[in-house]
């Protein structure tokens, strides 16, 4: 079906230039629209502000005990390690580890008693057992993940099971002997 149709363009270059510019404007406009539509997915100002560093007093944590806390919605374990656990963690030959890291790299010098790690298994995100008294600590005196059987040692390093990486250490610093600031 034919309509009242085109003549072929009489000024091809100028018409093309106009069409191209208009098309480019449309494309830029559509792309600019995406900025707010996608940008709104990012954490909002309240979430960001709530993620400010937090302070923690370590004195209530008895030797051999660990506590759980949250920072930015993420679970964190803080463990007051026994002498035996520290020695075990230091004695390991780093070269044999799946994710080689020394215990020194995972603690703060002079504060080796305290281990601070994220509390989600690096396999698929379950929470490993081993904090409370009586919970299985796995074969290496650390944590044992009940979901798929990953064993972490007393430095939070992966020793056995499917998890690929050690429990990561969050950013933190000692502000006093028994006070840390996470974040």
């Amino acid at each position: 079906m034919a309509h009242a149709t085109d003549t072929t363009g009489t000024e091809p270059t100028r018409r093309d230039f106009l069409m191209l510019t208009t098309g480019a404007f449309g494309a830029v406009g559509a792309a600019a629209l995406l900025v707010p539509l996608v940008g709104q997915l990012a954490p909002d100002a309240q979430v960001v502000a709530a993620g400010a560093p937090i302070e923690l007093d370590l004195t209530p944590i008895a030797e051999g005990q660990a506590i759980k806390l949250f920072w930015r919605g993420k679970l964190i374990f803080v463990r007051n390690r026994t002498k035996k656990e520290i020695d075990e963690a230091k004695a390991v030959d780093v070269a044999t580890l799946r994710d080689p890291q020394t215990d020194e790299q995972r603690t703060k010098a002079g504060h080796e008693r305290y281990l601070v790690v994220y509390g989600n298994c690096t396999h698929l995100g379950c929470v490993p057992l081993g904090n409370a008294a009586g919970e299985p600590k796995g074969e290496f005196d650390g944590w044992f993940c009940p979901c798929h059987g990953s064993h972490y040692d007393s430095s939070g390093r992966i020793r056995k099971g499917p998890a690929p990486l050690n429990l990561p250490v969050p950013p933190y610093a000692f502000t006093a002997d028994t006070k840390i600031k996470i974040g």
Binding site: T5, T7, G9, L18
Partner: peptide, 14 residues
């Protein structure tokens, strides 16, 4: 731009 593009396009009608 759209105004002039529209004029151009409609000018194609014989």
């Amino acid at each position: 731009l759209l105004y002039f593009t529209k004029k151009k396009i409609w000018a194609r009608l014989p």
